[in-house]
Write a protein that binds this DNA or RNA. Structure first.
Lengths: 206, 206
DNA sequence: AAAATGAACGAACGATCGTACAATTATCTA
DNA sequence: TAGATAATTGTACGATCGTTCGTTCATTTT
């Protein structure tokens, strides 16, 4: 984290950050295309050109917003897991942090990545690539945690880690999506139950 | 299906249908907000007002598009299941038809409902209500098929049907979403594997 | 003190959005 | 054949979109 002594650059960076925070919130609810520069300007009380010049193009704003969301995701989901020792304990912390991230209004419109992934699925370009890459990173991290637990003998040696990671991912994100759509928080619980029984099925009964 | 003898009404209905087919295709890839009346007009070679007057407002166009998508979904997923006898066989046909629907380009931008559900999760209004209702219908139908199989003793009496339906739904839709995002069809297979093992776990070994 | 830098602004651009309304065309009814 | 009906069109509206450009102002460097 380079800290500039130049007050101008400092001021610039902090408004840029304010823009991106708001942008991530909006995009989680209205999508990265629904994100508009004019709206950001109005809501933040700055001029349209003031917002624009920070990014140079809408696509660049979208990419920066994805990076900001990744940062928030890391902070709320990844870091709590990294703070505890490897193994099944870390897996549990990871899944807990993940569910908390879904429930708490980290993003007001539900998981940023669920929304934008569905939006950019079929829309080639740099934004899609960035989202896809973030999803690969997430999957890799999840698999790594599971593998660490397996290497410790806390998860069955025969367990198919990628498959397990995929299934845990599926139920958690789908549960959150349904909870939001139907405004029914018990659907989070349904996802939680699916995750814990799925995990219990592969943990060694030591 | 009321068939009119009036050639004018007939012509109107068939252009309306052409509009909705294209609208469903576009919305599956770009979302229901990305759908624009001007674009529809251009692509279909009719005037903007020609498109507009069929619906009267954009929201009404979106609602009609959702209904059209439901119709297509019924045709490709529900009807094949209804064509076979109740029980585990119907469940298998349903899941097969569903996966085929995901893979085949019924919608060019992936499952219409996955895209629009993520888009409208956090956006109150009639469109969201329509989407939510369609999802409830789908869930209910799935649970009904599973219950039929359970009542026949082909699925464990102790099986939690809503939970099972939720998990099958989760892996299938998530698999398709990832397959599209990463342009990797093997992810459909991963979902298929998850579904069949999940189903195998509750089928009575008779 | 002078020059350079960088953030933020205001005004305007062409394009597209959804919407409104009167006019036109083709078809059916009486 | 005259008149009603319904689909479709053309034109125009105000709003908003992303973007460009020249300017203003505060801060930093020389």
């Amino acid at each position: 984290m380079r800290v500039s002594t130049d007050g101008r650059l400092l001021k610039g960076e902090q408004t840029r950050n304010a823009i991106l925070s708001r942008a991530a919130d909006i995009a989680s609810a209205e999508g990265l295309e629904g994100l508009s520069i004019g709206r950001l300007a109005t809501e933040l009380g700055i001029s349209k050109s003031g917002v624009f010049t920070h990014f140079g193009s809408k696509e660049e704003l979208q990419l920066a917003t994805v990076r900001k969301a990744v940062e928030l995701y890391r902070e709320h989901v990844i870091e709590p897991a990294l703070a505890v020792p490897q193994g099944l304990g870390r897996v549990r912390v990871l899944l807990d942090a993940w569910q908390r991230y879904q429930r708490e209004p980290v993003f007001p419109g539900g998981c940023f990545f669920h929304s934008t992934m569905a939006e950019f699925d079929a829309r080639p370009g740099r934004v899609r690539d960035a989202i896809a890459s973030s999803q690969r990173d997430w999957r890799d991290f999840m698999e790594r945690c599971l593998r660490e637990a397996r290497d410790r003998g806390e998860i069955d040696a025969s367990a198919d880690v990628p498959q397990l990671a995929f299934e845990l991912d599926a139920v958690c994100r789908t549960g959150s999506a349904h909870a939001l759509l139907h405004d029914d928080p018990t659907l989070y619980d349904r996802a939680a139950r699916a995750m814990s029984t799925r995990l219990a099925a592969v943990t060694t009964s030591g």
